[in-house]
């Protein structure tokens, strides 16, 4: 294994570890429920993404095989992260968020989640 590949893969691994840790740390540090939603969707996704790229580079440059499985996992994570974030935000709005802080829509139509009666 050449030095350059080793440095590249090690850098990616360190980046992934740092971002994964920051994502979970943000979950504990931030105070507002909506703020906490930001940490995992971005920091943790980039952490796992860097780990997957490192794994793909490892099999490609060292074992000499091209594998697409890492790409599939990261594409799946990238597609599902916004969806689960949207659903979590919706359940926050439905249960805990102070609704007077939410601005009105541009048109007359109401927000989709605020149309329903609040549930206790």
């Amino acid at each position: 294994m050449s030095m350059v590949t080793e440095i590249l893969i090690s850098t990616l691994l360190v980046i992934s570890g740092v971002f994964g840790l920051i994502g979970s740390f943000g979950l504990l540090k931030l105070r507002d429920a909506m703020q906490r939603l930001h940490a995992p969707t971005k920091a943790t996704t980039i952490g796992v993404g860097a780990a997957l790229i490192a794994s793909a580079l490892n099999t490609w440059l060292i074992a000499g095989q091209v594998t697409w499985h890492e790409v599939m996992v990261s594409v799946f994570l990238f597609i599902t992260a916004p969806l689960s974030a949207l659903y979590l935000a919706k359940s926050h709005i439905a249960t805990t968020v102070d609704r007077s802080k939410i601005p009105p829509t541009a048109t007359k139509a109401p927000w989709a989640e605020l149309r329903r009666v609040p549930k206790g």
């Binding site: 916004p82 949207l86 919706k90 829509t105 139509a109 109401p110 927000w111 989709a112």
Partner: peptide
């Protein structure tokens, strides 16, 4: 972070 959308699809929260 997109949190919600309007019922007519003309604005995002």
């Amino acid at each position: 972070l997109t949190a919600d959308f309007a019922a007519d699809g003309k604005s995002l929260l």
